[in-house]
Design a protein around this nucleic acid. Sequence first.
DNA 1: ATGCTAAACGGACTGTGGTCCGTTTAATAT
DNA 2: ATATTAAACGGACCACAGTCCGTTTAGCAT
Lengths: 218, 218
Amino acid sequence: MGAVSLIPIRPGAHAGPADGQGGLTSRPAAESERRDAARNRELLLRAARELIDECGVDRLTMATLAQRAGVGKGTVFRRFGSRAGLMMTLLSDAEAQFQGRFMFGPPPLGPGAPALERLVAFGAERIGWVLEYGELARAADVSAYNRFDVPAAVLWHRHLEWLLRQAGVTADPWLMAGALSVTLEPERILHSVRVHGVAPARLVESWRELATRVVKGA
Amino acid sequence: MGAVSLIPIRPGAHAGPADGQGGLTSRPAAESERRDAARNRELLLRAARELIDECGVDRLTMATLAQRAGVGKGTVFRRFGSRAGLMMTLLSDAEAQFQGRFMFGPPPLGPGAPALERLVAFGAERIGWVLEYGELARAADVSAYNRFDVPAAVLWHRHLEWLLRQAGVTADPWLMAGALSVTLEPERILHSVRVHGVAPARLVESWRELATRVVKGA
DNA sequence: ATGCTAAACGGACTGTGGTCCGTTTAATAT
DNA sequence: ATATTAAACGGACCACAGTCCGTTTAGCAT
């Protein structure tokens, strides 16, 4: 796992050329990239990471990023399409790794374990993931309701739906997967933990409860 | 029901004097309001409604609103605190009515029916509500994660938690209520219906399924 | 080397939410 | 009537995301 390219994470829409096929990792991307473009992408990503751990995600503005990287603002947008796009790119390695783990990794998260166990593991891992990368994830949240159509979101949704079917859930697995999915969104998890001081373990336990009931219920 | 003042809907924070006690309805609010202020509030709300059904919520900018109402931009912000605050005010009547129905109205939504039935009814009504006022609700969504601390959201959350307890759910009803709650958020519902063409009845059915499993499960 | 062209560049510009602060005014006291 | 004052006003101003378009340049063909 790790370097495998799985599913594009960037939103399909606005972002011109952006990078090759979908910006999964921050690596060289499609190789047909002009030298200057490649150099600037590297410059920008490095600058972005620096700025973020100097001042936090919220304080990163596209203008200061451009300045720090020594490129024009237009270049930043050409590359990443939007602020959210930039954040997605920054997240892409972590995201890809998570994808790799639940699709190909060892059980109980990966294939091999019973569906319910995988479901439970999925939530637990996701909660941990959000606690680690949540700020970024929140900043990467595309507004409006096409948030759900970001490739990565579609993938989790499909995965959850598939697990539900495996577990024998026949009641509208598509919508059920959606319901479970929103439950794990960064906004809610971070809010619970940061504002209400809920312990992560309690979140995990609650997810297990929820997943179990959805699978076994009625 | 209808004219009863229940729970403030505006976010408690930023909005200066805004209106008396919490802007539940678009009526006169607290009576200690200067004439000019009252007149301007009226002017602004009327103008906002006009602009919205002329061009839709998204096209309403604070500047054009000010212009249309014939007041300064500063006045708009003094009154409503933010764009989201304005939208909440516009929603407040509908919101108050919904609150009245699930707290004091006839069963199965109101008190009198078994908890599970009330839970199911709550979801069904909420889905209908979102389909009617969803655009506005979406625009009223305060960003960041204090979205969950808006008084109205807190109220639903408490209501759901209470119903879960009534129904005998002992597994962390607070978090369970939260999980159920996000499931009904405008973003998701509108996305399902508008983008994926899911029939509202199917959403309702899925909610029933979910609620039932949470209550009876394990 | 030279010329060509598509891609990349950069920064001025726009639209919009939100703030600031000097000015006006409604309500009240005298 | 007049003075007083806290509230309300208004629009210039700021920050920031995102766009536009004239200019530069990498890569290639000759």
